[in-house]
């Protein structure tokens, strides 16, 4: 019996999306990053193009509450200063992108005004040269009030505006069109809704090369299997030629992984799980690696050590040893 390589012929490759615009393209980023382009499943170099994943580090525009100690240690010196926080991520930890979360927009909490939020965005844009993801607070009314101003503040920078949902996509889509940004299509762990949002976005004029997909995820031990399968299915659909699911995918890793008890609890509270470091950091890195295996293109991460580990793993994943 002779062995033949079981090569799949995929019908399409994943759409390429460029995040960030340099001066040449009307922005101020030091470099733009193009994601997507996968022509096969992750890491199957024998079969086709497999682009390297991008790591975005998350920056909050105000001091986070209730963060576990390992994260506090990493970031407490830059709390409340998103520009400094972003700078630290890029300069010290080598973040490819910054994911700025405008948590201070939350109308039930700080309720920062659209203009204040726009200032946060501008400050971060000035502080770092990498491309940005800008995330609203999740309150539809507030986000829709804020987007026109915040998006305008980053006009031309090709940031990812996050996020458009099935019941709230029109304002953010209009802002992205007006200010030349990319839209994050968010759906609640449902491949059909994900596709529906893509169709709705394209119906209002957002082009495929300006859409990134995001399935609400879950951390390791907390629903990661749903996300894993949905990401796999989405990627298979995209490679199978479904235009509405062929966009690159983003996974939120940090906040999901650190929500899980196994990452959050210190050793005193769970001695049977051993020391919180490296446990919690491994939890985040393992969550990231699982998503990478399902096809994620952008990871949004928290802990610098987890970022380092994932980089190291990625390096190994793109290295050929004896092959096959």
């Amino acid at each position: 019996m002779s062995f033949e390589m079981p090569v799949e012929n995929w019908r399409a490759s994943i759409t390429q999306v460029t995040i960030g615009a340099t001066e040449q393209d009307g922005g101020t980023r030091e470099r733009a990053i193009t994601i997507g382009g996968a022509a096969t499943l992750p890491f199957l170099a024998f079969e086709g193009e497999t682009p390297r994943p991008i790591i975005a580090m998350e920056v909050l525009d105000e001091q986070p509450e209730g963060w576990p100690e390992p994260l506090v240690e990493a970031f407490s010196d830059v709390y409340g200063d998103p520009a400094a926080w972003a700078q630290k991520c890029v300069e010290e930890y080598g973040a490819d992108m910054i994911c700025l979360r405008l948590v201070s927009a939350d109308p039930d909490e700080t309720n920062a005004s659209p203009d204040e939020l726009a200032e946060h965005v501008k400050a971060v844009l000035e502080a770092v040269g990498v491309p940005l993801i800008i995330w609203g607070c999740g309150n539809y009314d507030k986000d829709n009030e804020m987007w026109p101003i915040v998006s305008q503040a980053a006009a031309g920078e090709r940031v990812i505006l996050a996020s458009a949902e099935e019941d709230n996509y029109k304002t953010i889509a209009a802002c992205a069109l007006a200010d030349k940004h990319v839209v994050l299509n968010e759906s609640p762990l449902d491949i059909n809704i994900q596709k529906q949002v893509s169709i709705l976005l394209s119906d209002v004029g957002v082009k495929p090369e300006n859409i990134v997909l995001y399935e609400v995820t879950g951390g390791l031990g907390y629903g990661i299997e749903y996300a894993f399968s949905i990401l796999e299915r989405t990627r298979l659909a995209g490679l199978g030629g479904d235009k509405m699911l062929s966009a690159p995918m983003l996974s939120v890793v940090g906040s999901e992984a650190w929500k899980v008890k196994e990452a959050r609890l210190p050793e005193e509270e769970a001695p049977e799980w051993g020391p919180q470091v490296p446990r919690s950091i491994l939890w985040e890195a393992a969550t990231a690696l699982t998503f990478l295996n399902a096809g994620t293109d952008i990871l949004v991460m928290w802990h610098p050590e987890a970022v380092k580990l994932v980089r190291q793993a990625t390096e190994d994943l793109f290295t050929s040893g004896n092959g096959f």
Binding site: D190, N192, I193, K195, Q196, I199
Partner: peptide
């Protein structure tokens, strides 16, 4: 869920 669209998510 796929059918909750006009006409359908999978056109």
């Amino acid at each position: 869920v796929a059918s909750m669209f006009i006409p359908h998510t999978d056109i």
